[in-house]
Design a protein around this nucleic acid. Sequence first.
DNA 1: AATTGTGAATACTTTCACAGCG
DNA 2: CGCTGTGAAAGTATTCACAATT
Lengths: 247, 247
Amino acid sequence: MSSAETLREARDGTPQSPGTQRSAEPFTAKGLPDATVARLPVYLRALDQLAGAGTGTVSSDALAEAAGVSPAQLRKDLSSLGSYGTRGVGYDVANLRFQIGREVGSGSEWPVVIVGLGNLGTALANYSGFRSRGFRVVGLVDPDPALVGVSVHGLPITDLGDLEDLLGRTGAVIGVIATPAEAAQAVTDRLVGLGVTSILNFAPAVLTVPEGVVVRKVDLGQELQILAHHEHRRAAPGRPADGPGFR
Amino acid sequence: MSSAETLREARDGTPQSPGTQRSAEPFTAKGLPDATVARLPVYLRALDQLAGAGTGTVSSDALAEAAGVSPAQLRKDLSSLGSYGTRGVGYDVANLRFQIGREVGSGSEWPVVIVGLGNLGTALANYSGFRSRGFRVVGLVDPDPALVGVSVHGLPITDLGDLEDLLGRTGAVIGVIATPAEAAQAVTDRLVGLGVTSILNFAPAVLTVPEGVVVRKVDLGQELQILAHHEHRRAAPGRPADGPGFR
DNA sequence: AATTGTGAATACTTTCACAGCG
DNA sequence: CGCTGTGAAAGTATTCACAATT
């Protein structure tokens, strides 16, 4: 066998979704479509708001509206999870919230380590949204000696060498990479070698990881470029010649 | 017609892609598949690296490898753009870079405004990756009086009221929202009302915008939740009963 | 001989529309 | 009667595999 066969970061384009392996829907037990998995957090957020507003039940129409998807899609997604609705009535907010939360893996609080504490890494370390979504930042790591020892949001930045100890103590299997592109692959190898199996990559670099490790990439410049493309097309739709000359 | 018919932010799940309107590939002039558009920036980045390394030509295999996609997909994507390769040889790095750059809308430098300067907004304002990708942050806006006047990366934060003036002067049509969720829709309405037609939304909120306005959403908590889902499944694959009890 | 460009095949996702159930 | 759950249809995206071209 090709033991250490390494794979690309789950062939990803940006139409993000690809999960661990292949797996479609037609499989043994459960294996939600990737597109569905990607939307569950959105539903969860919408349900949180509804629950906060004291709503007891919602129809697929109302929940779809709140989540920004079509009612049909919402129903399809939820049905692939199980039958938690009541025909003629709708979904019980509290129960649906629990069910989706369980599927997503809330319930347990996931420890997360952040590597690279430049502007972005620091902002992430301070980001309160993680805590409220069921994650706890348990470690901040940066190789820069000037940063080691500095505290961010009450957590001290430690050296790369402390990673093993840190992961061992906390049991973290999710890592966030916010280093410059050049360092990203080395950091990834390190994390993976120490047991991290899920990576959120903010560095503008393509990561190669062993099979089984899931990588999701967020590239801010890339997102803007996609928007720029739309603006560009808006400006020159039919593509008349191009450049400045024209005639 | 339903004149001011407002739409959801380009039905997005996270398997992001959806662009301005429908538009598939089989259309009049050009209308790249959304999935392709989303990958162009990746190719551009890979080409930049190759150019930096002095590479003159690349094969689809090599470029695909560098971009983290399959060779077949790369060729399909590029062919939908035009025939810029040479059979038996490969693609000219410089030319391909130019062609994709033009398609994406590089060449011109896009002015961008950032609204909301908390941790994340500030990090974004400092983020050098925007500049290198063809964007220039021309304005920082925040309603918080305590922040107005503060300079970030040499740019002063101004009041929300200055938006009109700011957009008029700079001609910015791309806005980045990094406010709390509660403020996001109001800020969006304001931006759109003043001519912004592309929005990058970091707030964990579903935005409603008029048709024609493109919204892309980046939700950090959501990304982690998707990773958590995979970890969760890894731990309990076949779904034996569930909870702690089991038998 | 090597490598692109692309039709055809496959896979995945979304939408439709209605049967089924409360 | 209303609203969910879901097969079937439609639409997109990816992969295959090979003819075309340098």
